[in-house]
C-alpha cells in the first residue's frame, strides 16, 4: 500500500513540476493543483496511513493511540486543502486579469522573443 502511494506521489509531483516550468498560465495552474495533491498525500502519508482504522473514537475509557489514524497530519491536510483552493482561485483571477491586461497567457506577460 505504501509503495503504491509513494509511486503515486512521485507521479503527481513529477507531472506537477513539469507543468510548473511551462510557459502558459493554465499549465502552471494545473501544475500547482497536481503538486498540491501530491504534497497533501505526502503530509497525510507521514502519519503512517492504515486501512480500516476507526476514524472516530468511542466516548469514554482509555484510548490507545496506535489503534487510530494519526489525526495531526489529517488536520494539517484539511487546512491545506482549503488554503490551496483559495490560492488556486486567486491565481486564476490573477491570470485572467493578466491575460486581459497583456493580451497573452504567457506567464511573463509577453511572448518569448524569437
Amino acid at each position: 500500500m505504501t509503495l503504491i502511494l509513494a509511486l503515486a506521489i512521485g507521479v503527481l509531483i513529477g507531472s506537477g513540476l513539469w507543468l510548473l516550468l511551462r510557459p502558459r498560465t493554465f499549465q502552471v495552474i494545473c501544475g500547482l493543483q497536481l503538486l498540491s495533491y501530491g504534497v497533501n498525500l505526502f503530509i497525510f502519508g507521514v502519519g503512517r496511513p492504515v486501512v480500516g482504522a476507526p476514524p472516530v473514537m468511542q466516548k469514554a475509557g482509555f484510548v490507545d493511540p496506535s489503534a487510530y489514524a494519526d489525526p495531526v497530519p489529517q488536520a494539517l491536510v484539511l487546512t491545506a486543502i482549503v488554503i490551496s483552493f483559495a490560492t488556486t482561485a486567486l491565481f486564476l483571477v490573477v491570470l485572467l486579469a493578466a491575460r486581459g491586461a497583456t493580451g497573452t497567457d504567457h506567464v511573463d506577460g509577453r511572448e518569448r522573443r524569437p
Binding site: 509513494a6 512521485g10 503527481l12 513529477g14 507531472s15 513540476l17 516550468l21 502519508g45 507521514v46
Partner: peptide
C-alpha cells in the same frame, strides 16, 4: 524540464516510501 520533473518526482517517491 522533463529530466528535472523525472528527478523530482522519482526523488519524492523515494522519500515518501522511506518515510511511510
Amino acid at each position: 524540464d522533463l529530466v528535472i520533473a523525472i528527478i523530482g518526482g522519482g526523488g519524492m517517491a523515494a522519500i515518501s516510501y522511506a518515510v511511510m
